[in-house]
Every structure is written in structure tokens, then in C-alpha cells.
Nucleic acid binder design. Structure first.
Lengths: 226, 226
DNA sequence: TACTAAGTATGAGATTTCTCACCTAGGAGG
DNA sequence: CCTCCTAGGTGAGAAATCTCATACTTAGTA
């Protein structure tokens, strides 16, 4: 469900605290509206017209893509603040090349691209901000790639569960997660059943429920800090 | 060894074919000089003043960083055309945060940052180009991450050898490569000795020499295309 | 010269992870 | 109703990979 927020005081306040205002040299931020997207809903959908530049002010999302063979691949996870659809905007893609799904309730600014494309592309302050955003994203990628992912699956899975769960409930699809974590489906299930056996999780349908945060966090610690 | 090229015809030609000219809206490309860097030499060094924006017009490079514990971590590999030092430029870093080393002889354009920083940051054409560059880099990262790295080490190592070898000679440090590929040092050596035993490589000191390209390529195929 | 550190090597047993075979349940479509 | 497809689930043996222990070599340095 996507619900538009009209409270202008709230919008102004969030535009300031989330740094959205600060992305543009002119008053472009005032041209955006603010929407609330419920956990589980899609923010943008691969293949649909890329007509909006989004800015995530509150919430957590995941990025996926549909491959040629029809399978859905998990790609990345984003927390606030971040742009959505900025790659398509810069690359002049007519349609979104990825799907973004809300993991928690999300507050997003929406700026329609068509009326403002030229203004944005001439706004060197905005372009600088975008470049900085890309650079930081890149640093983050490098960091996660560098702290090598050779940890045993229990540890990486613990980190993944904590990353994607919403209100202690984990609902990712095992098939997709196995691909994402680079392990066999069989082994993923094996490790899940371990975590259930030792009381860290309980099986719920669909998904798992987190019981022992403390233990999961201790498993994930090495993966996150390194 | 870094050798400056003075042949203006050559410079002009390379600036065109490598798209260097096309990165700027004004004549900034003419302010750059062109240098030749020998295979094995460093293009930029982590910790040194980030006073130059580089553009690789010919050649292959690797990106490394020195970690807090003193170890050197391999991060990524770049082919032409690409920027070097663009992250530091955008991020206003006073010093380079990475080291870039030439894997083959490299031709690089050098643009001093100090005199032109403001011009670059106001040049929306340049900023757009840079954004596009970041986006493509990001797409590439996503691709390599998505074709999951769960292939057995022989295959990934074959791809790595072909990527980093220069004139059929491979000279990367095993300790660094083990970290980069996310496997134990022991196992890396084990797989190297397999490749030597089956006649794909011979041991040279330092490094290995490629004997059977065909076989290495067949091993690497799945990793590269997928 | 002796000492240290980093990189290279190798063996053996323990873990992790994979492959394959097979089985269950639910939903979509004919 | 049946069938196909996706997703979940399990067992068992095989392979990939890790850990640990132990050397050897080289370069740097006290």
C-alpha cells in the first residue's frame, strides 16, 4: 500500500533531517511529494517506466532483479538515506532495471523526472551530491567485499537474518537466499535447521521467527566488523 | 618508470579514441599531459597527495589498499577506459585512499586538480560523465556479484590468472590472492600445484608461467560468462 | 653474524559444503 | 480432476576447503 502524506510540516521537517533538501541547489525539493510504503510492498518495479527519482528518508529496502531465466536474484540492501532510480535517471533508461521492495515501512520522497530532467542535469550541486553518493556506495561495496566472505555460512546467515528481518520475523525465500549467499540450497536448509535446533529461531510459515537475538548477533559480529 | 610523452599528434589522437576529450565541456582535456607507466609500477600510491585526476587510456591496472594491520588487500582490477583518483577528487580526500599498480604498460592522461577543481565541479557535462562512469562501474560490480562466486577455486583461480598475468607471466602474491579469493592459503597452494601437475602452469620464481591457455580459458569460462 | 618477519611449501585430519536422489505441499492452468 | 511448477524438506556419500603443525627460504636489520 502506498499512502501519500499531506502534512506539510512533517514533509518539511523530514526533508531537512533526511538531507533531501540539501541535494539540490534550487527549490526542487519542494516539487517532490512524500509517500509511505508498507513493509513488503514494491517501491519500484523492474520493467515499469522509470519516471520518478526517489529518495528514501526512512526505512530499509532490498534490491532484486529478474534474470533472463525468470529467476529473481537478490542484489543488495539499502538503508536510509539513499536514492532509488538514480542509476536509471543518469543512464537515461526508459524503465527501471531493478525492483526495490520495502523491508520495513518506508517514507520516500518522489520527484517526477520528466519536468525536471534538464534542471537536474544542469544542477552541478545536485550532480556533485550524486557523485558523492556513488562514491560512498562504492566504498561500502569495497568494504563488504574486502572483509572476505569466506566465513562459514552460519555466521553469514546470522548477519543476513538480522539484516532482512522485520519485527523479528524473517521471510526471505530460501531459493533466492541460497543464490545470494553463494551456497547450495541443501546446505542453507541444513544450517537453518541447526539454528532452529539450538533455539535461535523457530519455524513459522512462511519464514522463521527470531528467538535468540543475542546469539545471532554474536555469530554475525565477525562478518559485520572485520 | 614514468615517461612523459610529448608527441602532440599522438596525444590528440589518443585523447579522441579513448574518449578523454569527450569527458569535458570545455578544453580541459588540453590541460592534461600524457604519461607512459611501465608494467609493475604504481600509478598512484595510498597516502600520497591526491593532486591529480587520472584517465587510463591504454593498459590494465589493479587497485589495492593497505589495511590497518599492515596487510595489503587486493580490491579490484580495471581496464581501459577508466578514471583513477576520481573518488578522492569527488570526496575531497587530501590523499589517495588506494594504491593503483600497472599490470601492463599503461598510458594515462594526468590532469592536475588544484587549478581546475572549481571548473570541474561546475562543469555539469563532466559531472554527468562521471555519474555515468560510476553507474557503469556499479552495474559491473552487481554483475560480478550476481554470477555467484560459489564456483570451485580452480575455476575462479584460472579466471584470476588470466586476468592478472602479463605476457603469460603471473606474479601476484599468494598471500594476497588467498585473501582476495576468500580461500585459505593452504588450499590456494594445493590448487596451484594441481595446475602445475596437469601441465597448465610451470613454477617460476617469482610466480608462474602460463603453458596451457586453452585449458585455463575453459576453466574460467563459467566464471566469466554466466 | 644472528635474529626476525614475510612469503613459500607440504602433510594429515577435521569441517564445511556439494551433489544427487527422493519426497511433500500448494497453487495455476488445462 | 490431473499435471506442471515452485518451494520446502531430508539422507548419505563425495568433494572442496579449513585448521594446524611444521619446515625452508629470502630480505632486512640489529
Amino acid at each position: 500500500m502506498m499512502h501519500q502524506l499531506k502534512n506539510t510540516t512533517l514533509i518539511q521537517q523530514l526533508a531537512t533531517t533526511s538531507q533531501f533538501n540539501h541535494q539540490f541547489s534550487t527549490n526542487l525539493a519542494t516539487k517532490a511529494d512524500l509517500v509511505l510504503i508498507s513493509a513488503g510492498d514494491q517501491v519500484v518495479t523492474q520493467g515499469k517506466a522509470a519516471d520518478t527519482l526517489w529518495y528514501l528518508a526512512r526505512g530499509r529496502t532490498k534490491l532484486t532483479t529478474t534474470l533472463a531465466n525468470g529467476k529473481i536474484a537478490l542484489i543488495d540492501f539499502f538503508t536510509t538515506p539513499c536514492f532509488i532510480g538514480e542509476m536509471e535517471f543518469i543512464d537515461h533508461q526508459p524503465t527501471y532495471t531493478f525492483t526495490v521492495t520495502a523491508l520495513s515501512d518506508c517514507w520516500c520522497f518522489r520527484l517526477p523526472v520528466a519536468p525536471y530532467r534538464q534542471r537536474l542535469l544542469q544542477d552541478s550541486h545536485f550532480l556533485q551530491q550524486l557523485c558523492q553518493y556513488f562514491v560512498h556506495k562504492n566504498y561500502r561495496n569495497i568494504q563488504t567485499a574486502t572483509r572476505n566472505q569466506s566465513f562459514p555460512l552460519v555466521q553469514r546467515l546470522a548477519a543476513f537474518i538480522l539484516l532482512t528481518a522485520h519485527n523479528d520475523q524473517y521471510t526471505e525465500k530460501n531459493t533466492q537466499v541460497a543464490e545470494y549467499l553463494g551456497v547450495s540450497y541443501r546446505h542453507l536448509l541444513y544450517v537453518f535447521s541447526q539454528l532452529v535446533k539450538d533455539g535461535s529461531l523457530t519455524r513459522t510459515h512462511p519464514g522463521y521467527h527470531i528467538i535468540n537475538h543475542q546469539y545471532l548477533r554474536s555469530l554475525a559480529y565477525d562478518v559485520q566488523h572485520s
